[in-house]
Amino acid sequence: MTTIEVVEPGLQTTVQDRGRFGYQALGVPVSGVLDFEAMRLANALVGNGGDAAVLEMRMVGPSLKAAEGTVRMALAGSEAKLTITLADGATRTVPAHQAFDLPADAVVKIGPLKGSVTACLAVSGGVDVPPLFGSRATYLRGPFGGHEGRALRAGDRLAIGEGAPAGPPLAVEPIPAPAGDTVLRVVLGPQADWFTDKGIATFLEEPYVIDGATDRMGMRLNGPEIEHVGGYNLVSDGIATGAIQVPGSRLPILLLADHQTTGGYPKIANVISADLPLAGRLGPGGVVRFEAVSVADAEVIRRDAEAALARRIGAMAPAQTAAEPSLAALSGENLISGVVDATNVGHPS
């Protein structure tokens, strides 16, 4: 069986897939990748089904060694310069959004991510940790799922499923990184009526800055206080990923993949599902604004985003030779931008 070995773990690298569904009634969160578009692009590049388990990394990526045999890999979701060091010491670099074959005993170092705090590395065949409640996703607070319920450490070995792809490594056009203030579209509710008109206006008109206390569970936001009508204690009810709750601090908290299944703070709005990958790319210090849309519009936007993602994947083409990485990246981009739809997936312009 093929395995990969963790040489350096990166800042927080976890095994994730689409998430763990069906156990929220026991209080078990969904978890899964923060950026499902990155996961699907990475999996497509290595010939996997879209939901195969990947390694999700935050801010600084790991260094990984192919412990037995060649492994095809691809990083998607952020820019990064991947350095491959072969067993004989020779090195070369590969960009993100391009598959590559890591020969036995070679090491790939991913290093700092650029343009997103989150990226996904897919390996051909998928990361084969034992599924728990039907999913390989890691839930850090559990701690369970993924690899021993925790972020990877140096020395960990991960099994990889069967399925080496034939043909040359592919490249895909990356999803553009957000620039400047980022707009997250929301549907107001289910407790928008717990806020004054002024509170709603503050929420929709003012910028919020992402706090350092941000993790896979939620993103605290700093900015103008949002006014409640009265109290801020409600009888706990269910929570969707992307819910924005406003506790007594009057500052919003955007709930992400590892969020609790139920809660008792009023939820002013939910980030629409098409914008959740974008939310997952944002880190401390980033500035966000919120824009309201209807549920029906949110559903259409999501379906359009799915279609655009499918077109992006359909337009994958063989990567240019990696001997000249910068030229290869350039020509790859030109080659692909001629055929792919220019829709800025997940990023409202």
């Binding site: 569904f21 069906g22 929220q24 009634a25 009888v235 706990s236 009810d237 269910g238 929570i239 969707a240 299944t261 139920t262 599902s273 549920v295 029906a296 949110a298 559903e299 999501r302 379906r303 799915e306």
Partner: peptide
Amino acid sequence: TELVPTFRSLFVHYDPTITSAS
């Protein structure tokens, strides 16, 4: 996709690529 019963409400999770809220 999933049902989460709480004290006073039922949270119905759905996949917007398959069905719609309405």
